[in-house]
Nucleic acid binder design. Structure first.
Length: 844
RNA sequence: GCAAGAGUGGCGGAAUUGGCAGACGCACUGGACUCAAAAUCCAGCGGGCUCAACACCCGUGCGGGUUCGACUCCCGCCUCUUGCACCA
């Protein structure tokens, strides 16, 4: 029969809660450890089986660190703003606040059943007005800041030098607005009519996959100037202990490329086309130019004859989705504008085309096409019979473009020659020439784009900006925050580009008490990412009403390296983790936080797949509910099983038989201490462990310590099983060894460990006890088994004293019958002796 | 296409300054206990050869290489997963 997990788990959870066992301490004499989970979105479906995986891992680490004498912060909260709640509210016709409360309480109940050591007094909820207040305040910090490129940091907008020629307040305001880190722009965005909102590029796939239609539409939007931080976001990746794949993804996302921008005058026209290229050394081979269909110069330079063709082409391109313009469109299309540009290097007139293989939002939206050395340009030139010139050798451009570096050729004019130079030299030389002649300059281009920050939804943080009738505006002061959402009758999409907030006239339209002027409030709200950019700061000091967190407590917990360990899914590798880094850096520049990076060590747990090896989903019917698993086998078994399944970072399938193996193990642990009748076992005695028992015990302590630090929970549990196998077979079970084993087990299976600890006579919680130390002397073995080899093949084994010298080992090896057999008739040419490992005779 | 990571028994997985491949668990087989079953306990469990033991041979995706010795290091492939994808 199973041990009584359902009784003891509930009982200990209640007792830990009433005794505040896991209340975070802030003892300045002890070091701190901040271990963080990515907080969940409280969906209506409740916790799924994947949630406890990462949470259990952090729970183990936090319990272990607490037992090692650290002040530990292991908090939990809810990322509760977002579209699904609003949609659920619409379906059920209940206010999102109520839905959120309901979902949060379900999540909390489920989390508590698993026995996590979260300090619930520090719980945060992004929709709580007291939390929102600081999200809005931080937004305004960003809004009221500009990026000082000289000092390479953000500074308050009040410190922005205003050019002397500006005197009109509106002009000064515009000058500032153009430099704020949060600003309004009119750009094409992903608009979803059915959802009634714009979506971030990264969100589009998800909703299109669910059958929604997303179109590109130019709209007024709030943007975050994350691009100002591109270089720092890239550089600081080196300081982080993050998964290589995530660092790589962020690097790609930032997409730094070095090159030059080159100015091409339009022939017989005053316009100039600026093109960005990473290969300025090939400028002599630029035989045509291409503008993106959306490029602002297209209208100005297109000739009368080409006008209709170009307009038609542009309209067709506008209707294409991004998918059609990229993935599906392997065949490039384009039309000539009829205009010509002058290649500044060759002085030749080259035709200007419009083609949608050039993206409006990257670089300058225009390229110099070098078909000889760029495959895309090559394909296009071949299709439309444009000239192809080779300016880099060696090799032939008969079949394809030569994109590799080489030696410049055919690249000479009256004032500069690249001929004979390597690609690197040629780049330097031409960049200097461009600069000297005013036709261009070296430049670094990033792929990263500014962050689209506004949503046209109800269920998000309102943007605290007032617009006055005279065209001026002001941001709300701290004493006016939080700006809370108004009650609405109906938050369904209105088919307009404004959120449901715009329908609440009394909220939107009012007389500003501070200025006495008539004002309109911004009706856009913030995206879900906003609240998750800084929640880890709020955990440090969640009750604070004067600041998002006091300086002292922020410094105490964020220390000099920020969050010590952050565990969450890899799906946030670029979005949340990039946004949060940016947000944190702005706060850092403005002096509000003490670290340049929020998270020192990051780890992604893998997916738990269905028993069939496929991703769990409702439609496949392979979804598991943690509540059911706990009902059947208990929380400790659920925790242990999820950890034993395999490496934390790997995706691995659930296996019900495997769960049985874990329950069997826990039953064995129970029986190590408790007899069938429920009393303490009589063979549990105050005796000294045997040397072998001591060795297993200390190996277990050592492995537990090492494996928790390495997040290798599965191998620690394997060691627990070895311990239990060893001690189950013992006639007498030394109490001291069993107790120390329970302390090792405690972070993993907190309930059973606590119960047995108390049954063995302790009155204090095992989770507040000091983690056992390793006695290395107990691990030293007197004798070791070595391998005897002849010509590198294993021919025997021998047990030798651990300190046996080479001669002794050789002698033992030579005495082995099988070794002798294999050496018969051969001469030993070489002897390899590795102390404690092997003896190898090379003979022929 | 580019980038990152992975490939080990029937299954999940262990093992890295190069030194006994398969720890631990699951499944399976046998035994003990039982009238019997379940549970529990004990033992076995990569493949080949062998009645069996000893001995021997093969074996970490494939093909090469370095080395006394390679799951581990190097070169070239194949497959899978994830991410990015006309980024000039």
């Amino acid at each position: 029969m199973h041990y009584p997990f359902s009784d003891i788990e509930k009982q200990w959870q209640d007792r830990w809660s009433s005794e505040h066992t896991y209340r975070s301490t802030e003892d300045p004499s002890k070091p701190k450890y901040y271990v963080l989970d990515m907080f969940p979105y409280p969906s209506g479906t409740g916790l799924h089986i994947g949630h406890p995986e990462g949470y259990t891992a952090t729970d183990i680490v936090s319990r272990f660190k607490r037992m090692c004498g650290y002040n530990v912060l292991h908090p939990m909260g809810f990322d509760a703003f977002g579209l699904p709640t609003e949609r659920q509210a619409m379906v059920e016709n209940i206010h999102p606040t109520v839905i959120t409360e309901r979902n949060v309480s379900t999540f909390m109940r489920q989390l508590q059943r698993i026995g996590f050591d979260f300090d619930w007094t520090r719980m945060v909820n992004t929709t709580d007005p007291e939390y929102m207040k600081w999200t809005q305040w931080m937004f305004l910090q960003i809004y009221n800041a500009w990026y000082d490129a000289d000092k390479n940091k953000a500074r308050p907008i009040s410190e922005l030098p205003i050019p002397e020629h500006l005197s009109d307040p509106l002009e000064i305001e515009r000058y500032r607005d153009e430099r704020r880190l949060a600003y309004i722009a009119h750009i094409p965005v992903n608009w979803c009519e059915a959802l009634g909102t714009v979506l971030a590029n990264e969100e589009v796939d998800e909703w299109v996959g669910k059958g929604y239609t997303v179109e590109r539409r130019p709209m007024r939007q709030w943007m975050m100037r994350i691009t100002a931080y591109a270089q720092r976001l890239l550089d600081d990746l080196q300081t982080l202990d993050w998964p290589a794949s995530t660092v790589e993804m962020q690097r790609n996302w930032i997409g730094r490329s070095e090159g030059a921008e080159i100015r091409f005058p339009v022939a017989d026209h005053d316009a100039v086309i600026t093109a960005f290229t990473t290969r300025p050394d090939t400028v002599f081979g630029a035989t045509y130019m291409v503008l993106a269909p959306e490029h602002p110069l297209v209208d100005r330079i297109t000739t009368e004859e080409q006008h209709i063709t170009v307009v038609e082409y542009r309209n067709a391109a506008a209707l294409k989705s991004d998918l059609e313009r990229t993935e599906l469109a392997k065949v490039k299309t384009g039309v000539p504008t009829g205009a010509y540009a002058v290649n500044p290097a060759t002085g030749e007139r080259i035709p200007i085309w419009v083609a949608d293989y050039v993206l409006a939002h990257y670089g300058t939206g225009a390229i110099m096409a070098v078909p000889g050395h760029d495959q895309r340009d090559y394909d296009f030139a071949r299709k439309y019979s444009l000239p192809i010139v080779q300016v880099v050798g060696p090799g032939s451009i008969d079949d394809h473009a030569l994109t590799e570096p080489g030696t410049a050729m055919n690249s000479e004019n009256a004032s500069v020659s690249l001929n004979g130079l390597s690609t690197d030299e040629a780049k330097r030389t031409i960049s200097n020439w461009l600069e000297a002649t005013g036709t261009g300059r070296a430049r670094i281009q990033f792929k990263l784009r500014d962050w689209l920050f506004s949503r046209q939804r109800y269920w998000g943080e309102p943007i605290p900006i007032l617009f006055f009738d005279d065209g001026t505006k002001r941001s709300l002061d701290l004493d006016e925050l939080p700006l809370v959402l108004p009650e609405v009758e109906d938050f369904n999409p209105k088919g307009t580009v404004e959120s449901a907030l715009s329908t609440v006239d009394s909220w939107v339209n009012f007389t500003d008490p501070k200025t006495g002027k008539h004002a309109r409030l911004e009706t856009n709200t913030m995206p879900q990412w906003a609240g998750s950019c800084w929640y880890f700061l709020r955990y440090c000091d969640p009750e604070n009403t004067d600041r998002f967190a006091s300086t002292e407590r922020e410094r105490f917990w964020m220390g000099d390296s920020g969050v010590d360990l952050y565990i969450g899914g890899a799906e946030h590798a670029v979005l949340h983790l990039m946004y949060a880094r940016f947000w944190h850096k702005v706060l850092f520049d403005l002096g509000h936080v003490s670290t340049a990076e929020p998270v020192k060590r990051l780890f992604h747990q893998g997916l738990i797949l269905g028993e069939d090896g496929r991703k769990m989903s409702k439609s496949l019917g392979n979804v598991l509910n943690p509540d059911e698993v706990i009902d059947q086998v208990g929380a400790d078994a659920l925790r242990l099983y999820e950890m034993f399944l395999g490496p934390l970072e790997a995706s691995k399938p659930w296996n019900t038989k495997g769960v049985e193996g874990i329950t069997r193990f826990l039953d064995r642990v129970w029986r190590l201490v408790v007899a069938d009748d429920g009393s303490l076992r009589t063979d549990l005695q105050d005796v000294a462990p045997t040397p072998e028992q001591d060795r297993v015990l200390h190996a277990t302590i050592k492995k537990t310590r090492e494996d928790i630090d390495a997040l290798s929970m599965n191998t620690a549990i394997a060691q627990f099983m070895i311990f239990v196998n060893e001690f189950t077979g013992a006639e007498v079970r030394p109490k001291s060894a069993i107790e120390r084993f329970l302390q090792c087990l405690a972070p993993f299976a907190p309930h059973i460990a606590e119960e047995l600890w108390h049954r063995m006579g302790h009155t204090e919680s095992i989770h507040l006890s000091a983690f056992p130390e390793v006695d290395e002397t107990k691990l030293v073995q007197n004798e070791v088994e070595i391998v005897l080899q002849v010509n590198s093949k294993i021919r025997g084994k021998a047990v030798v004293p651990v300190n046996a010298d080479q001669a002794a080992m050789e002698a033992i090896a030579l005495a082995d019958a099988t070794v002798q057999k294999h050496l018969e008739g051969l001469t030993i040419r070489k002897k390899i002796v590795v102390p404690g490992k092997l003896v190898n005779f090379i003979a022929n």
